[in-house]
Simulated assay, not measured.
Amino acid sequence: MTAYEPIPNAGSGHRFDTERRWAAAIALGFEARDEGGAAPITRLVRRRHVGPLRVQRPFYPEGKTGCCHVYLLHPPGGLVSGDELRIEAEVGEGGHALLTTPAAAKLYKADSHGVAWGQHTRLQVAQDATLEYLPQETIAFDGSRGEQTTTVELATGAKTLGWEVLALGRPASDLPFATGALEQRFHLSLDGKPLWIERQLLAPKHPRFTGAWGQGGATVQATLWAVGLDDEAAAIEALREELPDHNRWAVTRRQGVLLLRYLGADRNEAWALCEQAWHLLRPRLIGLPAHTPRIWLT
Rank of each mutant, 00 (worst) to 15 (best):
G95Q: 01
P102W: 06
E19T: 12
P58N: 10
L79E: 04
G94W: 05
S112M: 10
R57S: 06
E62R: 02
T151S: 09
H96W: 14
Y108S: 04
A238F: 00
P58G: 10
T252G: 00
P283M: 09
L44K: 02
H96S: 10
T219P: 05
Q184M: 13
A39K: 12
L175V: 10
A272G: 09
S189F: 10
A222H: 03
T151F: 06
A203Q: 15
G192V: 03
F59V: 04
R54P: 00
R282C: 04
L154D: 06
Q124H: 13
N9P: 00
G114D: 12
T121C: 10
D230L: 02
A265R: 07
F59M: 13
G216R: 00
D174Q: 13
V91K: 10
E90W: 13
L28E: 04
G169W: 02
P171N: 13
V50H: 15
A89N: 11
K159L: 03
L259F: 01
R248I: 04
G77K: 02
A178M: 00
A226K: 00
T219R: 11
Y133F: 15
A25I: 03
T156D: 10
R254Q: 12
V91N: 07
A155T: 03
D191P: 11
L161P: 01
E183T: 14
S189M: 12
A181T: 09
N9K: 13
L73N: 06
Q127H: 14
D245T: 03
L280P: 07
P40K: 02
D17P: 07
H120E: 08
G217D: 11
R282E: 08
E242L: 05
A39N: 06
N247K: 07
Y71L: 14
P194G: 03
S173C: 12
L285E: 11
H206W: 08
E198Q: 01
A110W: 04
R284A: 15
H96F: 14
Q255W: 07
Q148L: 12
R46L: 10
Y60N: 01
A172H: 13
Q119P: 06
P244L: 04
R208H: 11
A226T: 06
A105C: 05
T150I: 13
R248C: 10
W163P: 08
L243F: 06
H246P: 01
Q136I: 02
G162T: 03
G256Q: 03
S112R: 14
E90A: 15
A155P: 01
H49G: 09
R208A: 15
T100F: 11
Q127T: 15
P204Y: 11
